[in-house]
Write a protein that binds this DNA or RNA. Structure first.
Length: 428
RNA sequence: GCCCGGAUGGUGUAGCGGCCUAUCAUGGGGGCCUGUCGAGCCCUCGACUCGGGUUCAAAUCCCGAUCCGGGCGCCA
């Protein structure tokens, strides 16, 4: 097999003076000084200077002049210690192989000098993602996801995968995307809720799923998407308090892991992390309503959330939501059924997660479904799982993009997704 | 969906009735230059979203469409 690369840019150092290496990547910049040409090569790990003085021969110099920015090349050369070079060394090439010449002009500037608007960037996302700063977001995202998986596994959770094509359109609440499923209509799932709860009847006890969810809402904001990645857990023999404890420790763990593993990325993004302290502050819905200055039973508006967020200034929980403000499956409090064993995890900027202890008794569940104006028959496949031994359980769903967005201080949720899906965009 | 703002070379912008044959930067093409690191210098290329209207005159004002941004709403 052809070897295009023996070393990434960060695997070459001063003490390799004289060694032969093959590097590959994209032409980041070209500086042609006439008798000497500098090529800045960019690969996944950084930048590298390829220096071609006339002394290396007219042929190589000519080859260097054929290059254009973002052309893909593979360079065989010798490492040379050189004080005048950016990292104290450079590569003197013996061979420059052009693997794919980039067309000109480029749809946007990859060197970060001339900014491009988000819309332009998303249209040319493959190119936008070559920018180290943008790539850093997704390297952090990788570490966030790894951290979540490690943490939940260590807490005894099993990773599961549930259907994304579902039959029920009658769950109420959010709008669904209908799809055609052979001779029937089906929908893209808005949440793994029903399925992860059904898993509680299997004895697996603790499950988590990281997967896409789809919402057909016509929202048009910097913190909503129509396809998002949801981190969901469900936990048997547990209460709302138990899963809140898991959630806050998870958030803290993610922050710690990112801080430990993503120093370079955080520097590139100019982010200094504040590790949230556990336990997070808990305020009841009643207290939230008081801070916001609204009536009991009203939903918190975006401005109310901001107001409370400023008041508290860090991650916090809003607990004991009115039962009627939450979905049918949340467990009403026995001492006061008007409120429920439910909670939202808030970042000062926005809601990150919501969860609850669930109803595990089939009769009460049916009653609540009816009280929400829904038809229990549509939920038969779900309710049935509650009839033959369903333990008490609790869980939550956490928006991965919002977690990353608030972690990195991104001002648009689209920045946290490779190819965002919103009201206006289905391509690329 | 509502309110507000916007659309000018590939990218990011200035211009907001006549000084526009449209500014600046970056970029593309060509040239000079052996130590650049946002290289420098010279030449050159390239744009007023679309359709109507007002006016002697429209990038500029008005109407409509399309697209984009922000805020809000919607968001079991």
């Amino acid at each position: 097999m052809m070897v295009w690369r023996t070393h990434y840019s960060n695997e070459i150092s001063l003490d390799m003076d004289g060694e032969s290496v093959r590097v590959a990547g994209w032409v980041h910049e070209i500086r042609d000084l006439g008798g000497i040409v500098f090529i800045v090569l960019r690969d996944r790990e950084g930048l590298l200077q390829i220096t071609i003085p006339k002394a290396l021969g007219e042929e190589l110099l000519k080859r260097a002049r054929e290059l254009s920015r973002e052309t893909v090349i593979s360079v065989l050369g010798k490492v040379k210690r050189e004080q005048k070079a950016p990292n104290g060394f450079e590569i003197l090439p013996e061979e420059i192989e052009i693997l794919n010449k980039a067309a000109t002009p480029l749809p946007l500037d990859t060197t970060d000098r001339i900014p491009a608007e988000l819309d332009t960037r998303l249209d040319a996302r493959y190119l936008d993602l070559r920018r180290p700063r943008i790539q850093a977001i997704f390297r952090v995202r990788h570490h966030v996801m790894q951290s979540v998986r490690r943490f939940l596994s260590s807490e005894g959770f099993f990773e599961i995968t549930t259907p994304k094509i579902v039959a029920t359109a009658t769950e109420g609440g959010t709008a669904l995307f209908p799809i055609s499923y052979f001779e029937r209509e089906a929908f893209l799932n808005q949440s793994p809720q029903l399925y992860k709860q059904m898993m509680m009847a299997t004895g697996l006890d603790r499950v988590f799923e990281i997967g896409p969810i789809f919402r057909a809402e016509e929202h048009d904001t910097t913190r909503h998407l129509n396809e998002v990645t949801s981190i969901d857990i469900e936990c048997a023999f547990a209460t709302d308090e138990d899963v809140m404890d898991i959630l806050e420790r998870l958030i803290q763990r993610v922050y710690l892991d990112v801080q430990e593993n993503c120093e370079k990325e955080l520097n590139l993004l100019k982010v200094s992390l504040n590790i949230p302290e556990v336990p997070f502050e808990r305020i009841t819905y009643d207290e939230a309503v008081e801070i916001a200055g609204i009536g009991w039973g009203e939903d918190l508006s975006t401005q109310d959330e901001k107001k409370i967020g400023e008041h508290i200034g860090e991650h916090y929980f809003i607990t004991r939501w009115p039962t009627d403000a939450k979905p049918f499956y949340v467990m009403p409090c026995s001492e006061n059924p008007k409120v429920s064993h439910s909670f939202d995890l808030m970042h000062p900027r926005m809601e990150l997660a919501s969860g609850a202890q669930r109803i595990h008794l089939p009769d009460l569940l049916t009653e609540r479904i009816e009280a929400n104006g829904l038809n229990p028959e549509s939920f038969e496949f779900y309710i049935e799982a509650f009839r033959y031994g369903m333990p008490p359980h609790a869980g939550w769903g956490l928006g991965a993009e919002r977690l990353i967005m608030t972690l990195l201080g991104l001002d648009n949720i689209r920045e946290a997704v490779l190819f965002p899906r919103d009201r206006k965009r289905v391509t690329p």
